[in-house]
Amino acid sequence: MAIAFKQETFRGEYTYANSDAAIRRFPFPFAQDSYMYSVNMEPHTKGPVGSVFENAFDIDEHYLGECEDRRITLARDPQRCQSLPHMIDAEWDVLELIMTSLARDYPENFTLLRDGSHWTWINRPLNIRQPFIFGDAATLPRQPFEYITRQTQGDFVIMDQRDNNLFADAGMVTSQADWSLSFDLGMSFMEWHAPVPLAHELGIFDRALKYLLMLQQGRPVRRLNWTMTINPRLDTAPETYPEWGTDRASVTPENAGDKVHLRVELQTLFRLPRSNAMLFGIRCYLASLAELATYPRWAARLHRVLGSLPNELQEYKGLTRYRPSALQWLSAHDDGRELALGTEPV
């Protein structure tokens, strides 16, 4: 089915909004009334048609807006995309994985022509036709990882595997939930997860790392992660904190429905063939409380999850200041009835 791409902004006037279809396919992450960290990874196999799990890399109605927002962020701060010199093979791995996946899954929008190492990439939504020689970065306008991730929704980190560990040695990070690529670049798995509360004590990261070290080609895995953001803003980076941090103080019980957004990350992990590195995709979905309340089950569920969230998680996710307003707004949608397990909208 053809995707109707929207023109919208994730800053300034914030014209971003979800269509009814986009709300319905929103990856609501709460299957029960409370939340705690777990190793919630599962095989990234093809999901139901129309769902965000249908394809390896999800392209939706926000594609043009997100690519433009990434362009603006990179123009202001080119350091949002970095790659250490030993990651060049992994960069080509990522370019090939994304191009072949998009061309296979969205043939109306993307085409990849291959004749030996002579490739032509056609991106119709962005009006790009790029011939290049695979393996020769000089034939592309940018380095391969930056080139293709400027044309893909979601942030990406490439992790190098060595010493029985994973190192964040390359990244394209412009839609992050308050973490910095410049700060984390080159860190090991435990180092860059160090700030996460409670999960270390639960052994979550030990198990996750062991699981990921054995990740095999052709068997990607995924998980959902979440936080909340005020206004539909992709670029909530520490580097730009003065531009968005104070928005947290602007939330009232009256405006919470439009201002407070649930931010869900579809995280995917792929073993890369040439480099034996690992691609970590962080695809961000934003929906306001009012949009979520299209489905009463979701609003009621979120009310209960937020209400029972441990203090450490409230603090870490930066919710403390506006949580009472969000809870008050959501309470009108929660009559206390029992909600069946599951994340479905109805």
């Binding site: 190793v39 990874m41 599962e42 062991k210 699981y211 054995m214």
Partner: peptide, 9 residues
């Protein structure tokens, strides 16, 4: 089941 790799429990 979830992860099918002995990690999630």
């Amino acid at each position: 089941s979830l992860c099918r790799g002995g990690a999630c429990g």
